[in-house]
């Protein structure tokens, strides 16, 4: 009975908070754009817009996969290495197999994702530890394959994907849009999408509703791996090489994009629409700071702060008992 009286105010603030979570990314995107438009005259130009969209595509593809993982209330710290490894593998096989090497990038991503999923779901190792391990191990593998030097890509089609366009729209932006459409359908119209949200919202409830938790977890990590693999292919095509440092630090941008996009680390809410906005915000932030002449050292400080602020705003405190 005592929660009857207490629930009235929290009910109201809860609804406002949900609404804030939905509109927050759009508000931030607009504010950031207006801010940079005032401070830099180069910011609003067709050329810069194209640069931003090209830069945002790798991040948004990787972040869409991560959105599923975070909606499930798990975390993936390995994104940077899995994307980089895929880029390196594609460049490596492209030396002998040409364009046929591209699927190898997807497969490596999906395989690593499934592996993480199995260790996480079946052996009950927290996802942040499994993926932290993979982050380090994956980088080691990249160094092995490349022997520390970038592997150049000479295939013309691959280079066209990276820098060409279709009817004026950059090819990689189209790839990112298709990836987004697929992710949107998975999230909203499939059993897998429902299951992911259910596990993030309440794993026990999901289990008792007849969802096979382990399968969904493994499947989701494999799916996210597939997205990382695709992001790796796009990254290598953009750079024209498989670099041993490809994707380094991307995991932080990915998590920031997802969280700023309104998917709380506590899971069960949010989605890929917000993530696209989040990825644009992160990209525009570093683009704008570059144009405004802010040093890359200071940019790191700003990025870290933005990530923490985004989590502070988006997190679902009602679901949290003990913070560790």
């Amino acid at each position: 009975m005592s929660d009857m009286t207490a629930s009235t105010p929290s009910l109201r603030s809860g609804m406002n908070f949900d609404r804030l979570r939905t509109y927050f990314p759009f508000m931030v995107l607009i504010l950031v754009c207006i801010g940079f438009a005032i401070f830099s005259d180069q910011f609003v130009s067709a050329r810069n817009l194209e640069t931003v969209l090209r830069q945002a595509s790798v991040l948004s593809i990787a972040a869409m996969g991560a959105t599923f993982i975070i909606m499930m209330a798990s975390i993936d710290l390995s994104v940077g290495s899995v994307v980089g490894l895929s880029a390196v593998i594609v460049a490596y096989f492209m030396q002998s197999n040409g364009l046929l090497a591209a699927p190898a990038g997807l497969l490596s991503g999906a395989f690593l994702g499934a592996l993480v999923g199995v260790i996480y779901a079946k052996m009950k190792v927290p996802s942040f530890i499994v993926t932290l391990g993979l982050l380090v191990a994956g980088h080691g593998m990249m160094l092995h394959i490349t022997e520390g030097r970038p592997i150049m890509i000479k295939d013309e089609t691959m280079r066209w994907i990276g820098s060409g366009d279709i009817a004026g729209v950059p090819t990689i932006v189209i790839v990112a849009l298709i990836a987004f459409a697929v992710a949107y359908v998975i999230q909203n119209h499939t059993i897998l999408g429902r299951s992911i949200v259910a596990i993030g919202g309440g794993e026990m409830v999901a289990q008792r509703s007849g969802i096979r938790i382990d399968r969904v977890k493994i499947g989701t990590f494999a799916l996210a791996g597939l997205y990382s693999g695709l992001a790796g292919i796009v990254l290598s095509s953009r750079m024209g090489a498989g670099s041993p440092t490809a994707g380094t630090g991307l995991e932080l941008d990915v998590i920031a994009a997802v969280v700023i996009g309104g998917t709380p680390l506590t899971g069960g809410m949010g989605g890929v629409v917000g993530t696209i906005i989040g990825a644009l915000i992160i990209t525009i932030l570093s683009n704008g700071l570059n144009l405004a002449g802010v040093s890359s050292y200071s940019q790191l400080i700003i990025k870290g702060a933005v990530l923490i602020i985004a989590v502070v705003i988006s997190i679902d405190r009602k679901k949290i008992g003990v913070i560790k």
């Binding site: 119209h189 499939t190 059993i191 897998l192 999408g193 429902r194 299951s195 949200v197 259910a198 919202g201 309440g202 026990m204 409830v205 999901a206 008792r208 509703s209 007849g210 969802i211 069960g268 809410m269 679902d316 009602k318 679901k319």
Partner: peptide, 27 residues
Amino acid sequence: EGLIDSADIQFNIGLAGLTRNARGGFV
């Protein structure tokens, strides 16, 4: 064990036996 608080009524009602309103994995 019963309901997902953060989700809406429709999501919660549909959650038990998801396959009943689905075909080929699509809801």
